[in-house]
Structure formats: structure tokens, C-alpha cells
């Protein structure tokens, strides 16, 4: 088991596959509501991974990733409408490629920009996408969006594995959770390999010191555009998964608020770490539960002005406090604690 001690591809493969298999096993025993919650968080994990790659590993900030997610989601819905015979994996890949192309086009001028300019440009991009989609109504269904022509339903082997008494809805919810876990697993695996690769190292050098990066012969603009494209591809994959698991897409799902949510979750979880992205997804998935606990225990009417905005107030405040006091987020705090334990031993 020596290979498990080093950060090799084999180790990453073993860790990822075994965690995904274990989680898939869990989908059989947890209540269906937990499966739906898992599914909701899965797409967000992938979106955070994408933003993380851009922000955490190449030092560029985007406040417009919901725009790329919209490309992935609408790409999926439109492909399913016109080429319904296409296998799901092919649809997802094509939608991801569409979003990557959008990322490439936005990324090329973005290489000329630094920090705040770039963030502003992505914000302008992200805000421009939903109205654009709304107005291309013959393609996108306008403000109402599109219903997916085919939604993934549980295959017969899964149904035969469960009790006969288990309802079809329960099995379908489980299937969606398994499907999402699989996609997340592949995304995490690819990302951790990318992080350890030559490209990943180049990105980190560009982030930490762009002059040094240039001096060792890295092509700065190309590295930055590549980071943007990969990041947009991940956002597109997240959008595509979201479309499949929700069964519908609407321009209202991809407003600037979603971009801000993803940015917040990335910071809360921990910038630049895969564990942080996963934590962010879990926080997102359970934020509604947390909120109803909060309104219950404080006695705030959830439908009042305060109650309906409590979530944003809480997370907006938390984001500011995190950035001011612990900018490396939860996973940063955890590794700090571990480091202390290790040195005191």
C-alpha cells in the first residue's frame, strides 16, 4: 500500500473511486430527501471546482460563472430537444464544449486584464447572459425556459435491486443522486490530476508571480486563456448536470446572484482546494435546512421581508467575516488545526 502515501495518480484514483462507491452505497439506505439534497449540491460542487481552478490556481476572479453555467444548461436542453437520440454522456460533453468555447471567447480579452478589471468584465458578461437568453426565445423558450425532452430515469437493474414496495419516485431520486455522484467523481478526479500536472504547476506560478512565470518561459496569455477555458468548461458541466437533475432550465436560474453564491461558497469552503469545493457544495445543499432551523428557532416568519432575505443576509455577512478573518476558509482552518496537532506531537 506504499503508493497511498504519495500523491500519485493511482492514489487519487483509489481515493476518488472508493469514496464515490461508498457514497453510492449510501444512496440505498438514506431517505429519498437526502438523495435529492445530494443531487442539488453536486452541480454546485462542479461549478465551484471550475471557479476554484480560475481563482485559486490561476489567480483570476470571476463574478460571472452563472453565465457559463447557463450555456451548459441551455446547450443541454436545446440538444435534447433536437437530437433526443444522443446518449446522455455525449449531450453533456457537447454542452460542456459549448461553454468552454464561450470561456475561450471571454478569456482572450480577459488575458489583457488584471484583478478587478477582469472581475468587472466577468460580472458584465454574467449579467448580460440571462436577458440575451430570454430574447432568443425561438431557441431557448424565452423567459419560461425549456422543459427537458428526456429526463434520466432509473434503469431496471436498480429497480430490481430495491424492494418491490419502493416507489418509483424514490428509486429515481436515488438514480439521479448516483448519476450526480458519478459526474462529480469524474470532475474531481480530472481536477486533482490537472492540479498535479505540469499545467497546474504553471497556473500556480502565474498566480504567485507572473514575472517569474514569464522568465521561465511560460506563455502568460496562453496559460490564462487555458485556465479560463477549463474553468468555463467546468461551469458548463455543472449547468448541464443541473439541467438533467432539475428537468427544466430557465434564464431566471442563472442570474448574477448564482455567480455570487458560487464565489461565496468557494471562499467559505477554502479557495484553491478540492475539499473546499466539496464542502461548499455540502453547505449549499443544506443551506435551506439550516435556514428553516434558523427561522424556527428565532421565531422569524419565513415569508416576511426579513425571513425571505435571511439567507442572503447570513451568507453575505459570513462571506465578509470569512474573508477578513480567515481568508483560507473552512478547509484552511482545518489544515491549520492539523498542522498544530502534528507539530505538538
Amino acid at each position: 500500500m506504499n503508493f497511498l502515501r504519495q500523491n500519485t495518480t493511482t492514489r487519487r484514483l483509489v481515493v476518488t473511486v472508493s469514496s464515490i462507491v461508498a457514497l453510492m452505497g449510501l444512496t440505498f439506505v438514506v431517505p429519498p430527501i437526502t438523495n435529492s439534497t445530494l443531487t442539488r449540491g453536486a452541480a454546485i460542487v462542479i461549478a465551484i471546482l471550475g471557479l476554484n481552478f480560475l481563482t485559486g490556481w490561476s489567480g483570476q476572479v470571476s463574478i460571472g460563472h452563472a453565465g457559463f453555467m447557463a450555456f451548459g444548461a441551455f446547450g443541454t436542453a436545446i440538444l435534447l430537444k433536437h437530437f433526443s437520440s444522443l446518449p446522455i454522456a455525449a449531450t453533456m460533453l457537447l454542452a460542456t464544449a459549448l461553454s468552454a468555447l464561450a470561456g475561450l471567447l471571454v478569456g482572450i480579452p480577459a488575458t489583457r486584464l488584471s484583478g478587478p478589471y477582469l472581475a468587472g468584465m466577468t460580472l458584465a458578461f454574467g449579467a448580460a447572459v440571462p436577458p440575451l437568453i430570454q430574447n432568443l426565445s425561438s431557441l431557448t423558450g424565452g423567459p419560461a425556459g425549456l422543459q427537458l425532452e428526456t429526463i434520466p430515469t432509473a434503469p431496471s437493474w436498480l429497480r430490481s435491486l430495491r424492494h418491490d414496495t419502493t416507489s418509483l419516485i424514490t428509486v429515481n431520486a436515488q438514480w439521479l443522486a448516483m448519476f450526480s455522484l458519478l459526474v462529480v467523481g469524474v470532475a474531481v478526479m480530472l481536477m486533482s490530476n490537472l492540479h498535479a500536472s505540469r499545467t497546474g504547476r504553471a497556473m500556480r506560478l502565474v498566480r504567485d508571480n507572473d514575472v517569474a512565470a514569464e522568465l521561465v518561459g511560460l506563455n502568460l496569455p496562453r496559460t490564462r486563456v487555458l485556465a479560463f477555458t477549463i474553468s468555463a468548461a467546468y461551469a458548463g458541466l455543472a449547468g448541464s448536470l443541473m439541467a438533467f437533475t432539475k428537468g427544466s432550465v430557465s434564464p431566471q436560474d442563472f442570474l448574477v446572484g448564482l455567480s455570487i453564491t458560487i464565489l461565496s461558497l468557494m471562499v467559505l469552503g477554502g479557495i484553491g482546494t478540492i475539499s473546499g469545493a466539496i464542502l461548499g457544495g455540502v453547505i449549499y445543499a443544506y443551506s435551506d435546512n439550516f435556514l428553516s432551523w434558523l427561522t424556527n428557532s428565532t421565531g422569524i416568519d419565513p415569508y416576511s421581508n426579513l425571513g425571505s432575505n435571511l439567507k442572503t443576509i447570513f451568507f453575505g455577512g459570513l462571506l465578509i467575516v470569512t474573508m477578513l478573518t480567515a481568508p483560507r476558509g473552512i478547509s484552511g482552518l482545518i489544515s491549520k488545526v492539523f498542522a498544530k496537532v502534528r507539530t505538538s506531537r
Binding site: V61, I63, L263, G316, G317, I320, M323
Partner: peptide
């Protein structure tokens, strides 16, 4: 500062 100001915006 970008993240803090974006947080302040939504807050």
C-alpha cells in the same frame, strides 16, 4: 477586496 465588496453588495 473584490470578495469582500461583492459580499457587501449582496448583504
Amino acid at each position: 477586496p473584490i470578495v469582500v465588496m461583492v459580499g457587501f453588495l449582496s448583504l
